[in-house]
Design a protein around this nucleic acid. Structure first.
Lengths: 331, 331
DNA sequence: TTCTGAAATGAATACGTAACCATTAAAAGG
DNA sequence: CCTTTTAATGGTTACGTATTCATTTCAGAA
């Protein structure tokens, strides 16, 4: 491998000068500059970014721990995060966390020198949070947040759950049901709180309403839907905690020959890009901002990296996006 | 930052011994081992992977240059590639290439020390290929290939185009049309060749068949669809070069109030996960293997990294996946 | 007890760069 | 022409690890 020393020797200058040519060319005489540039060209020299990282104590890498891409929410956020970071000259180490591999990922990440970390997969009481704080590098959580209430960008989950549920109530549904995920995640917890709040307001007794707290894999949701079909009275409206769940419920409904929204109303939360596709056209609740949560988070993360902010605590307001999976209840 | 030297001092041993504790613990006396382990614990020492990379000349990083995730094909492949590499202990630097940023990405990648590169965005005559060969690190292209015909995993694009077209012909369609992308990409080129081959066999004159070669952004496809609606005779069957195109065509059809498959038959190529969703249920042609192209490629890349293979040249066979966007032509 | 070989440890160095400090060359001022 | 600045360059070191080679320690055999 050809190093800056080789270039220096070839050009008849010191390694220091070669370094200067690359980093502060205005400090080197035009004639020497040319000489060195030619040597670089001749020898096909490429600076070693690892060595640079070592001496500068900065890697130019950001770690992203995302949820899996079969959840369309993470398709949207990963896109924004990676593209934004790249545009700012950073590389992005991407991980897709699931139940199984999360511990492994955390260990790997904690042993890797990076300039910042952005993650979504954290649980409300996750000990990882404290390890991240110990690392003393900027980090931010998007979507989910931690009980310590620091370093996060989220949507107003309670309001989101409330708006979604309220929409169904307003359409005349009284037989609702809830399909959510584990309450160790702040998103599922908050959205369910909103669900209950809307039920109370509507005068519906919470204990009469079927609720499912499930893992969010296809198989799990399929099982939930099968259970749901056995309920009596059968719900006419399904409130899903995320678009990902809602979209898989749609899949199951169609699979079984049901008609949406006539047999079931379905509403989600997140307003993912895919929900806008005319084949899906999912009614949902999502962030008011034009930018998605991933974008907002990475933007804020850079603020922290540049010391413009110290600690991010941001909750974005939400609104309803009515589409074709919900409609006035027929009798 | 606490280094192995600090640990050494604290434990009263040499830095060499600390290094041994981490890498070859069987070579160090149990008593010393314990002493050092405790020091590591006490000082909260984490090895610096950058320094390690520098001395070992290997980074544990693989670069992935993928297409954008709004193309569902890359959702599937990115998932497999990242997860496989992670499982094998590698980190993955992810880039999403588009027309605009590809040059920038290439430059960044060429200046970054990594252990291997996997990419899909290459053009048939892309000079990048030669630069990659010069780097002398393992690399592989998936989906698209380069004119040099080395280092790739692809599907049989000609056969794919042929099967898709033939399916429409068999259903009784005579007014076909083709929507593809720029022919500098081997995928689009090959699939169109298959399209023509099937037309010839069906006795349809190629010059009577409308063809669109477009960029694959939503806006571009919308424009194409609007043009298509003005054609006379209006095509009854649309052959899209990729599922991504097909799915956006579906979106446009529904947007305009058309019914699928009655007003238009639509077929894609790639058999992406999303095409299986019941709301989409896209007829398509895809790889016969259970594994997707991304998985096959990353697997092969590891073979190369481990010197099990020198140069990959793999073309996977394909088959038809009939679903609900095509059907017998009604009169 | 002494010798021999293996086991355990340490000292020095390399990896390739940027940064700091020292030095030389050139330009400006009297 | 000499002095004083300023521009341009070079020598040396630090970053934190793994590796190579040399040295010490120790157990077992003679």
């Amino acid at each position: 491998m050809v190093s800056s020393k080789d270039v220096a020797k070839y050009a008849g200058v010191s390694q220091t000068t070669v370094s200067r040519v690359l980093n502060t060319p205005e400090l080197v005489k035009p004639k020497t500059l040319k000489k060195v540039m030619e040597a670089i060209e001749q020898l096909n020299y490429v600076p070693n970014d690892i060595a640079r990282s070592l001496v500068q104590q900065k890697t130019g890498i950001i770690t992203l721990i995302s949820g899996p891409l079969h959840n369309p929410f993470f398709v949207d956020t990963t896109t924004e995060i990676v593209n934004y970071a790249n545009a700012r000259g950073y590389k992005v180490n991407v991980y897709f966390g699931t139940e199984d591999n999360l511990e492994t990922i955390y260990n790997s990440v904690l042993e890797t020198k990076v300039d910042a970390i952005i993650l979504s997969s954290i649980r409300y009481t996750d000990p990882l949070f404290y390890k991240l704080e110990k690392l003393e590098i900027p980090f931010i959580m998007f979507n989910r947040k931690h009980q310590e209430n620091r370093h996060f960008v989220e949507i107003d989950n309670i309001e989101a759950g409330y708006l979604a549920t309220n929409h169904l109530v307003t359409l005349g549904h009284t037989d609702l049901c809830w399909i959510g995920g584990p309450h160790e995640m702040s998103t599922f917890f908050g959205r369910y709180e909103g669900f209950k709040k809307a039920l109370v307001e509507a005068g519906i007794a919470i204990n009469t309403v079927p609720t499912f707290f499930t893992n969010t894999s296809k198989g799990d949701i399929k099982r939930v839907f099968e259970e749901l079909l056995l309920l009596s009275p059968r719900p006419t409206a399904i409130c899903a905690a995320t678009d990902a769940i809602a979209i898989e419920i749609l899949n199951q409904c169609l699979e079984q020959g049901f008609d949406i929204p006539n047999d079931f109303n379905v509403i989600g939360i997140d307003n993912v890009e895919l929900s806008k596709h005319r084949s899906i056209s999912l009614t949902t609740v999502g962030i008011k901002s034009e930018k998605n949560l991933g974008f907002l988070a990475i933007e804020k993360l850079f603020d922290v990296m540049e010391k413009k902010s110290a600690c991010i605590q941001q909750t974005e307001s939400v609104k309803l996006f009515p589409r074709n999976t919900t409609g006035k209840k027929m009798n």
